[in-house]
Design a protein around this nucleic acid. Sequence first.
DNA 1: CTGAAAGCGCTTACAG
DNA 2: CTGAAAGCGCTTACAG
Lengths: 340, 340
Amino acid sequence: MAQKVKLSTIAETLGVSTATVSLALRDSPLVAATTRDRIKDQARALGYIYNRRAASLRTSRSGIIGVVVHDIMNPFYGEILKAIESELDRSQHTFILSNHYDSVEKQRNFLETMLQLGGDGIIISPAIGTPPEDIGLAEDNGMPLVLVARQIEGIILPAYRGDDSYGISLATNHLISLGHKVIAMIGGTDQTSTGRDRYQGYVNALQKAGIAVDPELRIPGPRTREGGFEAAVHFLSLPQQPTAAVCWNDLVAIGLMNGILRAGLVPGVDISVTGYDDLEEAAIATPALTTVWNGQSEVGRMAARALLDRLAGSHEPDGLHLIKPEMRIRQSTGPMKPRK
Amino acid sequence: MAQKVKLSTIAETLGVSTATVSLALRDSPLVAATTRDRIKDQARALGYIYNRRAASLRTSRSGIIGVVVHDIMNPFYGEILKAIESELDRSQHTFILSNHYDSVEKQRNFLETMLQLGGDGIIISPAIGTPPEDIGLAEDNGMPLVLVARQIEGIILPAYRGDDSYGISLATNHLISLGHKVIAMIGGTDQTSTGRDRYQGYVNALQKAGIAVDPELRIPGPRTREGGFEAAVHFLSLPQQPTAAVCWNDLVAIGLMNGILRAGLVPGVDISVTGYDDLEEAAIATPALTTVWNGQSEVGRMAARALLDRLAGSHEPDGLHLIKPEMRIRQSTGPMKPRK
DNA sequence: CTGAAAGCGCTTACAG
DNA sequence: CTGAAAGCGCTTACAG
């Protein structure tokens, strides 16, 4: 590889100053058009590579935006990330992605790396148990933050997510309207704000319909296909014999349906199942999954937009922005049929 | 936010030089233990944040490794990425992830960004149609590259992937051994080396068994659940009435099985289906998917390892490293049963 | 074991 | 419209 080409190389070969080259490459109107073109041609001819580290050291803007979520392999986050990516792409930002797998330490490492790299901002779906100090560290160093999908108690920041309590009550009400009375809630945890909100939405809907809430019908567990699949045995052996299940999300619902099928029962006929999120695969599951649209693409798009606006100087009011979920009725739910 | 704390702040408040602070923070044996401890305590007390841009400008090492694949939402790449992540994590590297969605332009943008940021290396699963010049640009600027999952014609670089031809022939032979004679191949493209290898493996297996190859039985298409789902109609209406399908990957197989179920047929009984990759969800599909383990975690781990070794100075020979695929027989395949 | 000084490659007032 | 000079915050020979 030849000698490294830098601004000064272009400046010297052309007999102009580095200041002029710098301005010309960024299309400054301060540089005459003919000078600018000569400079740009030369930059191309020499194979010049702009050194963003040097520029960023000088300007203290890096063009880097960090995004950290629980697990990018979960399509729920995947759909959010896709929306963030397309929004950041068009504004020339580089984004650095990371999973925290709900490890507060891994998340802290990420936040520190972003500070060290001089990131312009962070979009975060915080790990369970995130201490407010970790967020404080980022804020004290002037790092703008936007929350997606989850919140942190006692922290005021712009936050974008679905209205979980309302969304789950939609699913629960749908099952109640089909005549179901023994309705289990499968998967997830009550350790997050999301978890508490979802459980509350389920409880509210039951109570409003005059159905007693039985804590044994709450089966927490991993928020994955495997989690739903493995919950099936427990679910099918509950003494109260539920005829329907409200699942934490589509993955759990798809896993549960597979488990139900393996046991020789037919989801949507023998047992009604609802999902949550309306992932792309919900519509092509068998049976097609009745679920609740949770606005992933909206969440991602709006969060990215909010961060970019803030970087551009506008100061939106902080606070929670709730996306209104919507019911998507398909074939995995049907009229109540008593279990034999 | 208070005045920015830098190396010189620590140096001044302690009455030592920045050189000493710099060395102390990096645990250099050149600094006396007591001095080192005083400096580290002070750094902590002041809330010092190491500026990696400045350090990297000076050392021309950034600790950043770029990873670009077709689509991180595809669990095949997800499993590779997970392995890369855990390998890079332990060596204190930051990784920047990107999708190219098979857009050569988006991929070129990513490569350029990595050059501008002074990335230490790149792991890439190249976009279809990647021109050798794009790779050359990175190489000319001294950027180490490692390929995963795909190759580029005429480019010699370390590459890690499964042996596609062999793997698909395993699946095809399995179906042949069950008595199937009309076997379709569903999904994917023949525009990649992977695609050509897989088709070749299928053709080889058929020919070795004395079965004529019928091009109509090749139904290319998207490598997604949706792709498989939508191919079901075409597949079921083929005039030759195939009794089995070799699918491009597990996603296509799962989609195809759903489509077959919707048509009232039972995968594994009426029609045998094989996947490819052995994703986590293959085992819990209904029926559980017979597939070929494609070593994603091995590919990711080895590629990351190779890059890190190279950064550490060792010079492994370039070239292709093939992972040997293995058959995983489950319930989605069974003895041939003529279609009525 | 510690310090003074140069330099990584940009951008930004400032002067002309 | 263009140039000379300082400085962003580190690290690295070099000297002592």
